[in-house]
Design a protein around this nucleic acid. Structure first.
Length: 117
DNA sequence: CGTGTGACTCAGT
DNA sequence: GACTGAGCCACAC
């Protein structure tokens, strides 16, 4: 295939795609905004990902599993403290404002995993 | 259609 | 390890 299949940059679709990726995050694991953005098809859209999460109040979207780089909690609608407890409830070690063993619990899907949108 | 904003990230100090 | 500055993208107004 000479033509690389690229996700349709339909405006507004990006938000749906990001939510879909976040929903794919298994329990007990976390992903960074950059990873989610890359999985959504825009590795440089971490900025938008943050905005989308802020507006995302969907119970089916574990936004609390999305953290910043280096395991920084970043923020959370309602209080970062709540996010910290939520992650801890999944068995994730969380510090004052940072996740421990981040590279261990960091959810990094592989292309060979059959994951495709 | 232009501007502002943000749950970000990287590199340098 | 922490702070600062600069770069970046999508969305709301």
């Amino acid at each position: 295939m000479p033509k690389a299949q690229r996700p349709k940059p339909n405006a507004g679709s990006f938000r749906i795609r990001v939510l879909a990726v976040v929903r794919r995050i298994p329990p007990g694991r976390v992903a960074t905004y950059g990873d989610v953005a890359a999985l959504a098809g825009r590795p440089r859209a971490w900025r938008a990902v943050g905005n989308i999460m802020r507006d995302c109040h969907d119970p089916a979207t574990p936004c609390h599993r999305v953290v910043g780089a280096a395991g920084a909690l970043g923020g959370y609608g309602g209080g970062v403290q709540l996010k910290r407890e939520r992650l801890r409830a999944e068995g994730i070690e969380v510090g004052a404002a940072r996740i421990r063993r981040f590279p261990e619990i960091r959810w990094t899907p592989k292309k060979t995993s059959g994951f495709r949108l």
